[in-house]
């Protein structure tokens, strides 16, 4: 990827993503943290576009920003007395050390391995191909995923169901 536009876009997006992610861990207010998380998600979506994964990029925006961030906000708003602070617990230093270690190892591996880089260009159209793959080769995992989603919905509803709730709709 030597295209000037892509390179510039990559560096901007990379700075945005990593900067926002670092701020997510650093800011004190949880709501600010979630807002920065949204920025980080958007940056990752931009990186997907530079990787010519347009379908995944859009899905990233749709699911991560449109759904998961909202769920996180719900989790904060529905627990008003629990505090909105994003502070660290007693695990601060070990966690930091472990995180640096893991990330360092991965970076080292990334640079140390000689990857079998292919010479092909980015994908032309991914959505149709992904659809074909999902319904053909990965049909079974696809079905399992739908079952997983269903059980997650049912589980979530059962979990927050008030005790002694009457049967049927209110």
């Amino acid at each position: 990827m030597e295209d000037t536009g892509t390179v510039v876009a990559f560096w901007i997006l990379a700075a945005l993503t990593v900067g926002a992610a670092l701020s997510v861990a650093a800011v004190r207010n949880l709501i600010h943290s979630v807002v920065l998380l949204i920025v980080s998600f958007a940056g990752v979506a931009g990186l997907y576009i530079t990787l010519s994964a347009d379908f995944i990029a859009v899905v990233q925006i749709l699911i991560y920003i449109g759904a998961i961030a909202i769920l996180l906000i719900f989790a904060i708003v529905l627990t008003p007395r629990a505090g909105r602070l994003n502070q660290e617990g007693f695990m601060l230093l070990p966690a930091l050390a472990l995180a640096v270690l893991v990330a360092g190892t991965m970076i080292f591996v990334a640079f140390d391995t000689s990857w079998a880089i292919s010479e092909r260009d980015g994908f032309e159209e991914t959505a149709t191909a992904i659809g074909d793959l999902l319904l053909d080769k990965y049909a079974l995992p696809f079905e399992i995923a739908s079952v997983l989603l269903l059980s997650a919905i049912i589980g979530a509803i059962l979990l927050v169901r008030p005790e002694g709730a009457e049967e049927g709709p209110e």
Partner: peptide, 8 residues
């Protein structure tokens, strides 16, 4: 689904 919330 009712979620218990604080009086407001």
């Amino acid at each position: 689904m009712t979620i218990k919330s604080e009086p407001f």
